[in-house]
């Protein structure tokens, strides 16, 4: 338990929060418009594999990110078609998307490499090498990959868009009162599609950051480890507000980072208990925070345009 360890933990906290932050941005918008995209876990997993695969095949990180964004948009469109146009149950749809992604990523990863040992380059760091040796801040901030910086800036932008633009207002009104929004001339269906596609894009990006931002490999069989569900919990804990959700994500990220640090150092507590930590904290914080949250009025309900 030393100073170095704490620095190390802070650095890891920022890094492990980054994917959660990115995924949470899209999910906040989708849920604000009334649609719970429970498929983010599966979309994250697909994004994680897509990032690795494209990076492995083309050796270009930029191309990998672009293709991942496209994949996220397509999967988000699929979820939107089912939940918005077909009005399927949002929980069922999400769970099945997750199951589909779990199976499909395993299959595709098997095709990609027989040996299952694909290692690729990760995201570059934003600052030059000379910054890295600055004590404390150098390690915590300047050694972070680009993705971490992006992930920490985007929630502020998201809050700006949600509260200060017309589109943000439209999203909120569609989630709170779709009938009124439709009467005012908004296309409820269109806005719901936009937010769900957005959540797909960010979920895929988050998955990509999970693999390309940090580890540089893919492990089939659910390497996202329920992070999509942790983000969903963060959105509830954060009261559907981009910034407070981001804060919740950072707390969960910190638990994740602590778990890994303690495992490496070795402690009297069995490491399995540390592995439980992020999940236990998620459930506890949900329990504490749930009553204080203001739920979007038509959260999770199907919208029928013929309904008056």
């Amino acid at each position: 338990m030393s100073f170095d360890l704490i620095i190390d933990w802070l650095q890891a906290t920022l890094r492990w929060s980054a994917p959660l932050l990115l995924v949470s941005i899209g999910e906040v918008f989708a849920e604000r418009s009334g649609i719970i995209n429970m498929g983010i876990e599966g979309i994250m997993l697909s994004g994680a594999l897509c990032g690795i695969a494209i990076c492995y095949l083309t050796k270009s990180v930029t191309l990998a990110v672009l293709v991942t964004l496209l994949l996220g948009a397509v999967l988000g469109m699929g979820v939107a078609y089912l939940t918005v146009s077909r009005r399927t149950n949002q929980v069922v749809t999400g769970l099945m998307i997750n199951m589909l992604a779990l199976g499909a990523t395993d299959l595709l990863f098997g095709l990609l490499s027989g040996s299952r040992h694909v290692r690729v380059a990760t995201f570059p760091t934003l600052f030059p090498k000379s910054f890295h040796s600055i004590p404390v801040v150098g390690k915590i901030l300047f050694q972070q990959p680009v993705s971490t910086w992006v992930a920490f800036i985007l929630p502020f932008l998201a809050a700006l868009v949600l509260y200060r633009t017309t589109w943000g207002l439209n999203v909120r009104s569609v989630g709170d009162n779709p009938q009124a929004a439709a009467t005012a001339g908004l296309s409820v269906i269109k806005i719901k599609y936009q937010t769900v596609i957005l959540s797909g894009i960010f979920a895929a990006l988050g998955g990509c950051v999970l693999t390309l931002g940090e580890v540089g490999y893919f492990a089939s069989g659910g390497m996202t480890g329920g992070r999509g569900f942790i983000v969903m919990a963060a959105v509830v804990v954060g009261g559907w507000d981009p910034l407070r959700t981001a804060a919740a994500c950072i707390i969960f990220g910190a638990a994740d980072a602590a778990q890994l640090r303690f495992q490496a150092v070795g402690s009297v507590i069995p490491y399995q208990f540390l592995q439980m930590l992020p999940y236990v904290i998620t459930v506890i914080s949900l329990t504490i925070m749930v009553k204080r949250s203001r739920v979007p009025k038509t959260w999770g309900a199907a919208y029928d345009p013929e309904d008056v």
Binding site: L95, G226, V236, Q272, M276, Y279, T282, V283, L286
Partner: peptide
């Protein structure tokens, strides 16, 4: 407590595994 059971049960699944 009004905690969504989908999230809580899935979180508890991971706890059960560990």
């Amino acid at each position: 407590k009004g905690v969504n059971e989908v999230t809580s049960t899935i979180m508890l699944n991971y706890v059960a595994i560990y």
